[in-house]
């Protein structure tokens, strides 16, 4: 059975007692594992794909992904992004500073802009290398995350309170680009689209419902129309948002370590695959024996439910190789 078939069976609620899928979020760790710098990983799709494949083969992960940093779309919208050797790319400027800027912002041609094209090329290259046997997760920024990248986090969070017009105009443009970016990645072979909207963990449910929920749902519905599945990623504690998130219709929901997996299962329901949720700091700092115990506990709890074993968020670059391996081994 290919990993793709294994994933499809999970989607359909099959083999829940016997097969355990493993998908740690690997970025800087994958780059280091292949002796590549983060700069190379984030700026050249071939490096990103090869690093992912090497880590997938070594750690026997069941899915691979195109995630690298939050600034692909931001760069396409026109912001300057720099690439430190061993750190996440840095956005050097805020390009939306006023309502006029928000109104004037143009949705970019994602094939023309270097950073978005690089990810689309990555989707194509994955398809070529893996021949459809392994599920590939593309990546887009969620509407609030992207608006924060364009306008600055603090400013954007306040604009939702003071100037809803600004917030709505900007986020609507982010939705247009998110949908288009998702469509192009699916077109080139991605099976799943990951949507990262981490900042949502920091807002209250009222603000989430007023500004974010319907927009995320619109993107999710659109990805489904394009034939893809959706993995929603909001790291941090989203316990207070679950009651709203349950209406979004995502196929996979990433859950960070602060969220109680049982409660999430009860609120979200059995149809959604929950992915998580060992604390990445513990994955880095514990012994492999401790990790075997933690993994065992998670798996016992999740037996019979739709679940993918993973860290709560990205595996940190300094995580010892044997620690990640311990999770894989004890989840078999």
């Amino acid at each position: 059975m290919t990993k793709k078939q294994k994933f499809d069976r999970l989607l359909n609620g099959m083999d829940l007692e016997t097969a355990k899928l493993f998908r740690p979020i690997l970025m800087h760790f994958a780059a280091r594992f292949s002796q590549k710098t983060y700069r190379e990983f984030a700026s050249d799709y071939r490096v990103l794909v090869e690093c992912n494949i090497k880590a997938m083969e070594y750690f026997d992960t069941d899915l691979v992904g195109l995630i690298s940093d939050p600034y692909r779309e931001t760069s396409a919208f026109g912001a300057k992004v720099s690439f430190p050797d061993e750190a996440v790319p840095k956005c050097e400027e805020i390009i939306v500073k006023s309502l006029e800027d928000a109104k004037a912002l143009k949705n970019p041609d994602l094939y023309k802009e270097e950073r978005t094209r690089d990810r689309i090329e990555g989707a194509k290259y994955f398809a070529k290398r893996l021949k459809g046997d392994i599920p590939v997760i593309g990546w887009i920024e969620g509407p609030l995350a992207e608006a924060c990248d364009l306008a600055g986090v603090g400013e954007m969070l306040m604009q939702m309170m003071i100037d809803p017009d600004f917030a709505n105009i900007l986020m609507d443009k982010c939705v247009v680009t998110a949908k288009e970016f998702a469509r192009l990645q699916i077109l080139e072979g991605c099976d799943i689209i990951g949507m990262g909207d981490a900042i949502c963990s920091q807002i209250d449910i009222g603000t989430y419902d007023a500004f974010v929920k319907e927009r995320q749902k619109e993107i999710i519905d659109y990805v489904h129309e394009c034939g893809g599945k959706v993995k929603l990623h909001i790291c941090g504690d989203i316990s207070h948002l679950l009651a709203s998130i349950k209406d979004l219709g995502m196929d996979i929901l990433d859950l960070d370590w602060q969220v109680d997996m049982d409660i999430a299962h009860d609120v979200i329901g059995p149809d959604v695959i929950r992915c998580g949720n060992i604390d990445p700091v513990l994955i880095q700092n514990s012994s492999s024996e401790q990790l075997e115990i933690m993994t065992g506990e998670t798996i016992k709890k999740e037996m019979g439910r739709k679940h993918i074993i993973s860290g709560g968020c990205e595996i940190t670059v300094n995580t010892p190789i044997e620690n990640l391996m311990a999770i894989r081994k004890s989840s078999n």
Binding site: L157, M158, M160, M161, I162, Q202, I203, D204, T207, H240
Partner: peptide
């Protein structure tokens, strides 16, 4: 106490 979130605190600070 998690009764308010970041946007509310930012507004207070403003």
């Amino acid at each position: 106490e998690n009764k308010v979130f970041v946007p509310q605190v930012l507004m207070s600070a403003k």
